[in-house]
C-alpha cells in the first residue's frame, strides 16, 4: 500500500487501489465495504472495498480474515500483506477522507453530514470498481435498510446486502475492514503535519475523544487563533468545546 499520493496533500480526499485482478473482470465477484476511523476526533476516516470472484470465496475464508476490531494491529498488518499478495484474485480500493475534508464538509454552509459523506464515499468506491470492469454480484455493507435501498437503486443488477456486523459475517467485508483499518493506522502514525509546528508529539492515543492521551494532546496543541492543525476534525464537539473555552471566538 503506497500512501504517497495521499501524503503529497493530506488536506484532501484520496483514492488508493490495488491492481484489478484480471479474474475479477471475467467472473462474478463479491464485494465488501467497510470503514475505519469514523469516531475519532483525530486523523482521517478511511473507506475500503475488497472484492474477489465468488469462485474464490473459500480461498478468502482460508486466509482467516476476521473483523478488524477483533484483531491486533500486528495481525491486521499480517493479514493485509496476505490479501495484497493474493493479487491474482483479490482486489481492494480505499478512499481516505482527510480530517480537513471531514471538517470542511460538516461545517459547510449547506450542511453535509457524516452519513451523507460516508454513503457518497461508499457509492464512489463501488462505482470505481464497476468502472474498472469488476463484475460485482453479491454483498456490500453499511448501517441500515434505507441505505440498502439507496444502493440497490443506484446499482441495479447488483444484489446489495446492508447488514450490521457484516464485518464479522462476510469474509469479503472483513477483508475490506482490514484494508481500511491498516490504512487509517498507518496514516495516523505517520501523519505529516502541513503546519510548521516543528517536532509534534505523536503520543495522541487512539484519537477517540474519551482517550486521556487524546484529550491531553488536544489541550497541548490548542492555538488561541487557529485552533488546531488540520489533523484534528474541527466539526467534532470535543474540539469545538475546547476551542470555545480556550481560543478566540470567531464569528462567520
Amino acid at each position: 500500500m503506497d500512501l504517497g499520493p495521499f501524503e503529497v496533500n493530506n488536506s484532501v480526499s484520496c483514492r488508493l487501489s490495488s491492481q484489478i485482478p484480471s479474474l475479477c473482470l471475467e467472473q462474478d465477484c463479491c464485494l465488501g465495504i467497510d470503514e475505519a476511523g469514523r469516531g475519532p476526533v483525530l486523523g482521517p476516516m478511511v473507506y475500503g472495498i475488497c472484492f474477489c470472484p465468488v469462485s474464490k470465496k473459500e480461498n478468502l475464508k482460508e486466509m482467516k480474515v476476521a473483523d478488524s476490531k477483533t484483531l491486533t494491529e500486528a495481525e491486521r498488518e499480517n493479514l493485509f500483506e496476505k490479501l495484497d499478495e493474493a493479487k491474482s484474485f483479490i482486489g481492494w480500493a480505499l478512499q481516505i477522507l482527510s480530517p480537513n475534508t471531514i471538517s470542511t464538509s460538516m461545517l459547510q454552509r449547506s450542511k453535509y453530514n457524516l452519513n451523507a459523506l460516508s454513503h457518497d464515499t461508499a457509492i464512489g468506491l463501488v462505482q470505481f470498481a464497476l468502472d474498472s470492469g469488476v463484475q460485482i454480484f453479491v454483498d456490500t455493507v453499511g448501517p441500515a435498510e434505507k441505505y440498502e435501498e439507496k444502493l440497490s437503486k443506484l446499482f441495479p443488477g447488483i444484489t446489495v446486502t446492508v447488514r450490521p456486523k457484516a464485518d464479522s459475517l462476510f469474509p469479503v467485508v472483513s477483508a475490506a475492514s482490514i484494508c481500511a483499518k491498516v490504512a487509517r493506522d498507518r496514516v495516523v502514525k505517520g501523519w505529516n503535519f502541513a503546519e510548521e509546528l516543528g517536532e509534534v508529539d505523536t503520543d495522541y492515543g487512539s484519537g477517540y475523544p474519551n482517550d486521556p492521551k487524546t484529550k491531553a494532546w488536544l489541550l497541548k496543541y490548542l492555538d488561541p487563533v487557529f485552533g488546531y492543525p488540520q489533523f484534528v476534525r474541527f466539526s467534532w464537539s470535543t474540539a469545538q468545546t475546547l476551542m470555545e473555552n480556550k481560543s478566540a471566538a470567531v464569528h462567520w
Partner: peptide, 24 residues
C-alpha cells in the same frame, strides 16, 4: 502564528488559492 498555521497550509491551484480556517 500565521506563518506556521496559515501560510504553510495555503494551496495554490492555478489562479485560486485554498486554505481552511477553524475547519472551514
Amino acid at each position: 502564528r500565521i506563518t506556521e498555521y496559515f501560510s504553510a497550509t495555503v494551496k495554490d491551484c492555478k489562479h485560486e488559492q485554498t486554505v481552511s480556517f477553524r475547519g472551514r
